[in-house]
Design a protein around this nucleic acid. Structure first.
Length: 788
DNA sequence: GGGCGCTTCTTTTTT
DNA sequence: AGAAGCGCCC
């Protein structure tokens, strides 16, 4: 044990910390790995450590860097920190990886070879930029799907590879690398960077410029990283630039993470970074936060038992002082429709019991599952909120407006140019644009710079467009951000377009909301005196060798440029009827980091969860299990799990086997609401008739209520499966086997019968054996036993 | 240039 | 089933 300064021991900050938390908060200023289980007070530990370090005079605000993945987490940290300690957060670097990279590149734009007001491409901008490259190269979009090319490029960048570093063994890859190279050139020409580029560019600058690197190493004494299990290769390398292993300058890098909650390997996260970190930094002691302050006992028991089925773990078991609480409720529904109906009942009963809707969450593995649930909630008049989907700054009308704004800042941004050059339409067609692009390409200029070279009517229209941009820029010179945006909405014709559009009302609202958002941004960021988002960070700039501070010119980044950056870096909220007490619907992925009193975990079916596509991926099943672990640990008091015998997916009915994850939960913590079925498959036995009858009754009842006013919802209703009487007719001839019913095979075990075909010796059956897959069997050979 | 209809796809996603 | 993108035709 190291000695603590006396002031520290008595600090009120350290009150009420458990021993492990205390150890983490007051860990010596070196590398440390904190394994923080779900609900173990991770954010509290992080913020308290920062506060404690400053309070005990071990570091000044300028010496702190804390990195998170989401803006939400970063904000949370700042909020808590300022509540703990009256501190000037201005000098601290607290933010997302990308946010901090942006800050870094804004300060060193010249060395990074970027224009001062470079703009950031979001995911869809990136795809359209790539599309243009593929088109320009005359390549087939079938063979080079822009989105996939995007993954490839992002993947390369996240491995730290520039086009020249990629080893291509086949023709396809060689072409991909070529696209990558052209794409990078195009971005550079247009003065834009994508998300991965933000990281890579900062990393390279740090790597290649010793003076800058050393400056930042001197500056940041304490680097703290949240959700370390989600970092990719590049992010880890980037962190090492700030706080290298074996650092003689005595910095402290603290990684906080939970390997059991690593659910983003599919997009490049490397859990292995945790083990690498431990080794490379010679971490003396891994601090485990295993005391859980969130969930009741049964819930934790279930989580612990489930995750123990994973082999590759650093090892950690959550415990709680709260009581056992209620066991997990498990419900088997006849159909996805019936599952939704059951959810309604459960939600209503909780609501009557006094629980607010905000505290109820319905989680699912894939977005497609939400539809049935949504229509049930909608028709029952229960307010709900769906996370995911389009976010504010991603809406088409908002992106159009932003494109105009970006052109004011940088007319050479071809992506933005193409987006709005003919929207609203101004007589500039594909032909004209083709000519323009050819000319631009030939002369190495931007589209904007080439407008006057295009002959004819189209050319004239293009010049008019360029003039429109120029005059708007002149017109808004020296105006407030609000005025600029209002002006752009007017002169571009966007507002008029949507006003006259028959269903443009919502879009008009969103454009008005954009003005509000800009107003709020200006106020929050306090433009004029204390702007946190300002690119120029005096602390960083002062004495940074090679820095190109705006002090040279006295210029600061314009509010517009800053707002555009903000829009790209923070896509804003999803459509949310904020303020209303609503049930929360979301995928398990988006539930990470959240918690609710009551959680409904739906669709626990083989093929859906674990998802069939995940099983083929390396480590896929274990990642799915971690996902299940994340889902379980979202619940504080009540957790219910449901699965369906049949589900409509991609337009056809699927017969499912219950998820293997259900078998990995401790029996003693479960309370089955439906008879626990003997078969892995469930069959339409006793349980079915009852479920079916009630689902049908309610279904038809609701249907008649749907009536005229809500036609659009009607289509979303899923019919309950055929009545059992009908089903039996289909298959009586095959010794009691029935479609949709459970069967037993001596080798493959339990399954659900999907199809019966042919007769006599020719009879075949298709059976879903869950983890053994879907198989065709000859009935004359296979011994299939019906299960009731 | 706009609208209609055909095809294709459908795990998870932040920045 | 349903959305979204794409291409064709007016």
């Amino acid at each position: 044990m190291h000695l603590q300064p006396p002031a520290a021991a008595s600090s009120p900050l350290l009150k009420n910390l458990n021993p492990e938390q205390l150890a983490a908060v007051t860990a010596p200023a070196e590398a440390a790995l904190i394994l923080a289980g779900a609900g173990s007070g991770k954010t509290r530990v992080l913020t308290t450590r920062i506060a404690w370090l400053m309070q005990t005079g071990q570091v000044s605000p300028g010496g702190i860097m804390a990195v998170t993945f989401t803006n939400k987490a970063a904000k949370e940290m700042l909020t808590r920190l300022t509540a703990m300690l009256p501190v000037n957060v201005r000098g601290m670097w607290i933010g997302t990886f990308h946010g901090l990279c942006n800050r870094f590149l804004r300060a060193h734009w010249k060395l990074a070879k970027l224009p001062q007001s470079f703009q950031i491409l979001d995911a869809s901008d990136t795809v359209s930029a790539i599309k243009r490259v593929i088109k320009a190269m005359n390549l087939d979009e079938e063979r080079f799907v822009p989105k996939q090319v995007g993954w490839f490029i992002a993947g390369c960048k996240e491995d730290g590879h520039r086009p020249g570093d990629v080893v291509a063994h086949d023709e396809q890859t060689r072409k991909l690398v070529e696209i990558y190279a052209n794409y990078d050139d195009q971005c550079q020409r247009e003065g834009v960077v994508d998300f991965a580029e933000l990281m890579l560019r900062s990393y390279e600058l740090l790597r290649d410029n010793a003076a800058i690197r050393e400056h930042y190493q001197q500056r940041f004494r304490h680097v703290l990283v949240d959700e370390f299990q989600d970092t990719n290769k590049l992010q880890y390398a980037w962190l090492k630039m700030f706080a290298p292993p074996d650092s003689r300058s005595g910095q402290s890098l603290i990684a906080v993470g939970d390997d059991d909650q690593s659910i983003y390997a599919f997009r490049g996260a490397r859990v292995g970074n945790m083990a690498d970190f431990e080794r490379e930094y010679r971490v003396q002691q891994v601090i485990k936060l295993e005391q859980n302050y969130r969930s009741h006992g049964h819930i934790l028991d279930a989580a612990n038992e489930l995750i123990s089925h994973n082999s590759q773990r650093l090892g950690k078991t959550l415990r709680t002082d709260a009581g056992q609480g209620e066991p997990l409720r498990v419900y088997e529904a006849a159909s996805d429709f019936a599952e939704a109906q059951w959810l309604l009942e459960e939600l209503q009963s909780l609501y009557r019991g006094g629980l607010v809707r905000q505290e109820m969450a319905i989680l699912y593995r894939s977005n497609a599952q939400s539809r049935v649930i949504e229509s049930a909630l909608f028709n029952a008049g229960i307010p709900y909120r769906v996370y995911g989907g389009l976010r504010f700054f991603e809406r088409a009308e908002v992106k159009h407006a932003l494109a105009y704004l970006r052109l004011l800042e940088n007319p050479n941004d071809d992506t933005s140019f193409l987006r709005v050059v003919n929207f609203p339409t101004r007589g500039i067609g594909a032909k004209t644009l083709e000519t323009l692009q050819d000319l631009a390409k030939a002369s190495g200029r931007s589209l904007y710079q080439s407008v006057s070279a295009v002959p004819g009517k189209g050319g004239a229209n293009l010049v008019a467009f360029a003039n429109l941009i120029d005059s708007t820029r002149n017109l808004t010179q020296g105006h407030t951000l609000r005025e600029i945006i209002e002006q752009v909405l007017a002169t571009s014709g966007l507002m008029d377009f949507y006003r006259t559009d028959k269903d443009g009302a919502e879009r008009v609202e969103n454009l008005e909301e954009l003005v509000n958002a800009a107003e709020a941004f200006v106020t929050q960021e306090g433009f004029g005196k204390d702007a946190v988002a300002l690119p120029v960070d005096e602390v960083a700039e002062a004495g940074t060798p090679g820095a190109t501070p705006d002090a040279e010119t006295g210029e600061i980044m314009s509010p517009l440029a800053a707002f555009l950056t903000h829009a790209a870096l923070e896509a804003g909220d999803n459509q949310a009827q904020a303020g209303q007490d609503a049930v929360q619907l979301m995928t398990i992925h988006s539930a990470k980091g959240l918690e609710f009193d009551a959680v409904f975990l739906t669709g626990l079916e083989e093929g859906l969860f674990p998802h069939e596509n995940a099983l083929s991926a390396h480590d896929g099943l274990e990642e799915e299990r971690r996902l299940m672990y994340v889902a379980i640990t979202r619940a504080r008091k009540k957790l219910a799990i449901s699965f369906c015998q049949t589900r409509m997916l991609h337009g056809q009915t699927r017969y499912n086997v219950k998820s293997r994850f259900l078998d990995e939960l401790p029996e003693t913590s479960l309370k089955w609401l439906t008879p626990r079925n003997q078969a892995g498959g469930m069959g339409f036995g006793s349980g079915f008739s009852r479920d079916y009858a009630s689902a049908w009754e309610r279904g038809s009842g609701l249907k008649s209520m749907v009536g005229a006013g809500r036609v659009e919802q009607k289509a979303a209703w899923v019919e309950p499966p055929l009545p059992p009487s009908l089903r039996q007719k289909v298959s009586e001839e095959h010794g009691g086997l029935r479609v949709g019913k459970g069967v037993f095979h001596t080798k493959f075990g339990e399954g659900v019968l999907l199809t019966l075909e042919g007769s006599g010796t020719d009879a075949r059956a298709q059976v879903n054996f869950g983890r053994h897959g879907v198989k065709w069997l000859a009935l004359s050979v296979a011994k299939l036993q019906p299960i009731d």
